[in-house]
């Protein structure tokens, strides 16, 4: 199963490397959002500093939703799901493989966004370990939720508008937990940053269990 997961993740990442949608479009767009936030808040330095954690996760949410859409577009455009159904690859492997490739892409997005936030919003990191752990936890939670809800909207004509509607309420607790954890990591306020990080791992675990149980069934219907 591990070999299948790695194979599927590698396949998605190879497609992305060749198409360069994540690097060429999604990453610049999320950077633009970070800049636009500064315009919207009138480049008010204290306000940007206080809101840095939340603004960072809103940008990740937006970029991650686009990446999730893209992860399913590459399958539905070519009718690949029908091929998967006929192949001996397990649905659980597909769920984990797509989650892994999405996780790597979101982590890459975070690697671009974090220095941007630190430089543009002029914030200092107080706890590097917490910052990294929260970033990883958020990416894990985002990727498993994204794949679970992505397959729900896959193959439908209005998926581009439906997916954010389904996904954003589910990801709202991740946004909240990520923002609070980042605020602690950036020294903006003393809060239970590690508890919020644990909450993101719990959300990821719940969705992984549900995803492993339901993905095959949802794939059958897509």
């Amino acid at each position: 199963m591990l070999a299948e997961v790695l194979l599927l993740a590698r396949k998605d990442l190879r497609i992305e490397r060749r198409a360069k949608v994540a690097v060429g479009q999604v990453a610049p767009l999320t950077l633009l959002i970070v800049v636009v936030f500064a315009f919207a808040l009138d480049a008010n330095a204290p306000l940007l500093e206080i809101g840095a954690g939340g603004l960072y996760w809103v940008a990740v949410l937006y970029g991650g939703t686009l990446l999730t859409q893209r992860a399913f577009e590459i399958e539905t455009e070519g009718g690949n799901f029908d091929d998967f159904k006929m192949s001996p690859i397990k649905a659980q492997s597909l769920f984990l493989g797509k989650s892994l490739s999405l996780f790597i892409q979101i982590c890459a997005l975070e690697l671009v966004l974090t220095p941007a936030i630190l430089l543009l919003y002029d914030v200092q990191v107080a706890e590097w370990l917490l910052l990294i752990a929260a970033g990883v936890a958020g990416a894990v939670a985002f990727s498993v939720c994204g794949v679970l809800w992505g397959v729900m909207a896959a193959g439908l004509r209005v998926r581009s508008t439906l997916l954010p509607l389904l996904l954003i309420p589910v990801l709202a607790p991740v946004l909240l937990a990520g923002s609070r954890a980042f605020e602690t990591a950036l020294g903006i306020r003393a809060d239970a940053g590690w508890s919020w990080t644990s909450l993101m791992f719990v959300i990821a675990a719940v969705h992984t269990v549900v995803g492993l149980a339901a993905f095959g069934f949802l794939l059958e219907e897509s």
Partner: peptide
């Protein structure tokens, strides 16, 4: 906050039900 999330989640459910 959780109530408004519940509201929006079920709005999403209703949107899914209305799809062609």
């Amino acid at each position: 906050t959780t109530t408004v999330l519940l509201f929006v989640t079920y709005l999403g459910y209703l949107a899914l039900r209305r799809l062609p």
